[in-house]
Design a protein around this nucleic acid. Structure first.
Length: 707
DNA sequence: ATGAAATGTCATTTG
DNA sequence: CTCAAATGACATTTC
């Protein structure tokens, strides 16, 4: 089994340590400025070759430079590096300082390591080389240290990518990244390594690790953050963007394997460059097996992105698949259990590669189910196809990191690593494999999980041979807990959760049927398919919620429609009101004009007749158009027309100053009068002509002012 | 950080 | 009485 293992050393791997504070574009810009010698204030001499750089950047990344440039203030500083520092080793480090990416090959990694040590890139040193160097040059450990259960399989990626481990919330101490730039202070808070249950590390292993650690980290094994190092095993660039240093990892879990420090996401790059874009649909499958127990300081969220590093690998057609029939156990379980350490099992990695190879990476949507019990698959796996190991390793690390950074996502795991009773374990096999991933919505918010970000580009499913129909998102995404206490905090994706539950209760028919069938069909289905009590409850619950959901949608739509209709009606009524008011105004103007004409005529008649006041009074009284018509207002007119009436000088202006009448009531009262004979005008004219009676003002006031 | 909108769910009413 | 639909109220998510 082990003799088939071979871990390809990547030709080039890129580790990216990047903080969320300094996003990649900032780093890129910095590096660009460096290359353009923009604002560079220091010249570095290495083996006779000069490099321009910024002191602040160097100081942030390296103890050596911090000491050298810290007290120096002037421009144009020239630093000749020690002879031990070579261009070959230094250049990648310089680039790393600016880009947060460490480009290394098997050939230069030792020199980089050496230079990093000399220059005080200690964090990088700790984070990377303790893991990488053995990975490159000490493969023999891989086999011995394999304690991963054979059930752990993975099927992985076909392209290079980058993994961002960036801390999303600048919490305690992490703010230092602002000045440290890409190079993080990887000192983890070692005390925050609770997940020790899973450790299978022999005491000597731990002690050895500790011993190997320099003073800075002596008391605590490097966490994944610092081990944001990858065992890259592919050809193309593997980019790990690690992040903030304050990430804490379960020390014991990390030290449980020969490759203790590295608990990095692993991603396999496919054997061949994937140029097609069709590969994006491949379904990654991941299980959290062996990831239990990872613990991280809360709030320090790493971000792993699996990004195409090159155009040729843009199509990240990885199929990530990890299966495990059993939950993680403490390594004490020996062969029966998956080691907590992610890199401990190269067998598994290679096995997964084998599976992957056996199944083929055709770049198309392809999901190869490897059931935990699939011995044949395992056999193929073990035969060792050596191609994409790296992705396994990377993937594994990614998982490990991811899990480490969300310890609370899988509350049931780390704390309870022990095997449950068979029934419970069976449940776990089916549904809890992916606990820590379930809450990470890989399809819609993969960014939430740094480690899975771009893995999310593909469909992620729980490893299970039962092809439950789950069209939408991964059923295992964002719905985590299995079991009754699965009242996960984020019930966010209800569909996913439903699908997962359906999976849990082993629903014999697609979930879609529950809500899509008519009542009769549904009942018929229930008759045909005898369900357990749990299944029935689930089915009815799903149906009820589904129906109610649709009802609520209809209800809301109706509400909106109703509101819309009411708004339309309001508009309609407003328009009608406007029309009526307009008509009213037209009628008023028309009436005014008619009254003016009549007044004019009356005035003319009175003038020609030259009647004395008494006669005028008599005329008013005898007029058939008498003020009888103006029931309410004519009294005033008549009074003012009476011989005893007190006249004023304003009467003549009355007809010309009729206030507009807009009151339909007053108008209806006065209109007939005006139309018949307009006695008001007659009276006014008469009184006006006699200059003894003033009626217009009071009359018009009483007649029209009420309008 | 905050509020509005959208959405899902539950409890209850209604037919 | 049961069931489906409707709906108010509430919580959560998204923008």
């Amino acid at each position: 089994m082990s003799n088939t293992l071979s871990l390809e050393v990547p030709r080039t791997s890129v580790f990216t340590f990047q903080s969320s504070v300094h996003s990649s574009h900032v780093l890129c810009r910095l590096d660009e400025q460096r290359q353009n010698d923009f604002l560079c204030d220091v010249t570095l001499i290495v083996e006779g070759r000069s490099f321009r750089a910024h002191r602040v950047v160097l100081a942030a990344c390296s103890d050596y430079f911090q000491a050298r440039v810290g007290s120096h203030a002037g421009q144009g500083m020239v630093i000749t590096l020690p002879d031990e520092v070579t261009v070959k080793g230094f250049e990648p480090l310089l680039q790393f300082a600016y880009t947060a990416k460490l480009l290394f090959t098997k050939e230069n990694i030792l020199e980089i390591h050496s230079c990093a040590t000399i220059l005080g890139f200690h964090n990088l040193d700790k984070a990377c080389f303790e893991f990488l160097v053995p990975k490159f040059f000490d493969k023999s450990k891989g086999i011995q240290g394999l304690r991963r259960k054979a059930c752990c399989r993975q099927r992985l990626a076909q392209a290079d990518f980058s993994i961002n481990l960036s801390k999303d919330n600048g919490e305690q101490g992490c703010t230092g990244t602002e000045t440290q730039l890409p190079l993080m202070n990887l000192r983890s808070k070692e005390a925050a390594f609770p997940g020790s249950e899973l450790t299978s590390c022999p005491p000597e292993s731990q002690s050895r690790d500790s011993a190997e650690t320099d003073g800075q980290m002596d008391c605590a094994p490097p966490g994944p953050s610092r081990c944001a190092l990858l065992a890259a095993c592919g050809k193309q660039g593997l980019c790990l963007e690690s992040c903030d240093p304050q990430m804490t990892f379960p020390s014991e879990a990390l030290t449980s394997e020969d490759f203790c420090p590295p608990c990095l996401p692993c991603v396999v790059e496919n054997q061949e460059e994937v140029t097609g874009s069709t590969s994006c649909g491949i379904t990654p499958r991941i299980s959290d097996v062996c990831l239990a127990g990872v613990d991280v300081t809360p709030g320090c969220l790493p971000r792993v992105t699996l990004l195409p590093e090159s155009p040729s690998s843009v199509a990240f057609g990885a199929t990530l698949e990890m299966d495990c029939s059993q939950p993680c156990q403490p390594t004490a379980a020996g062969n029966d259990c998956c080691p907590a350490g992610p890199f401990g099992d190269l067998e598994a990695a290679v096995a997964a590669v084998g599976v992957s190879s056996a199944l083929g990476h055709n770049g198309n949507k392809e999901t190869a189910d490897i059931s935990p019990s699939s011995n044949s698959a395992l056999a193929r796996v073990v035969q060792g196809k050596d191609e994409p190991e790296r992705s396994i390793v990377e993937r594994e690390v990614a998982e490990h990191l991811a899990k480490g950074f969300w310890p609370d996502l899988c509350p049931s795991q780390a704390p309870e690593p022990l095997l449950l009773d068979p029934a419970a374990q069976a449940g776990l096999e089916k549904a809890s494999d992916f606990h820590w991933l379930k809450q990470l919505d890989l399809t819609s918010s993969t960014g939430d999980c740094p480690f899975l970000r771009d893995l999310g580009g593909e469909e992620t499913r729980l490893p299970d041979s039962e092809p439950v129909s789950q069209p939408e998102k991964s059923p295992y995404v964002s719905s985590v807990n299995s079991g009754e206490d699965s009242d996960c905090d984020t019930e966010g994706d209800s569909e996913s959760y439903t699908a997962e539950r359906a999976h849990e209760v082993q629903l014999p028919f697609p979930v879609e049927k529950i809500s899509s069938l008519s009542r009769n069909d549904f009942q018929q289905l229930l008759k045909v398919q005898p369900l357990t009590r749990e299944q029935l409850d689930f089915v009815h619950d799903v149906r009820r919620r589904s129906k109610n959901r649709m009802a609520a949608q209809r209800c809301r739509k109706r509400k909106l429609d109703c509101i819309h209709n009411l708004e339309c009606e309001i508009d309609k009524l407003n328009n009608e009101k406007e029309k009526l008011l307009q008509e009213q105004e037209e009628l008023r103007l028309s009436m005014e004009q008619a009254m003016r004409n009549l007044s004019s005529l009356c005035q003319k008649v009175c003038d020609e007749a030259a009647l004395p006041p008494e006669q005028l009074q008599a005329l008013v009284k005898c007029s058939p158009l008498d003020c009888i018509t103006f029931t309410s207002s004519d009294g005033c007119a008549r009074d003012s027309c009476s011989p005893e009436g007190t006249g004023t000088a304003e009467s003549s202006a009355a007809p010309q100053h009729l206030p507009p009448s807009t009151d339909p009531i007053s108008r209806t009262a006065s209109t007939p009068v005006a139309e018949t004979c307009d006695p008001i005008s007659i009276i006014n004219i008469c009184l006006d002509s006699s200059s003894t009676c003033v009626t217009g003002d009071s009359y018009t006031h009483s007649t029209f002012s009420s309008v």
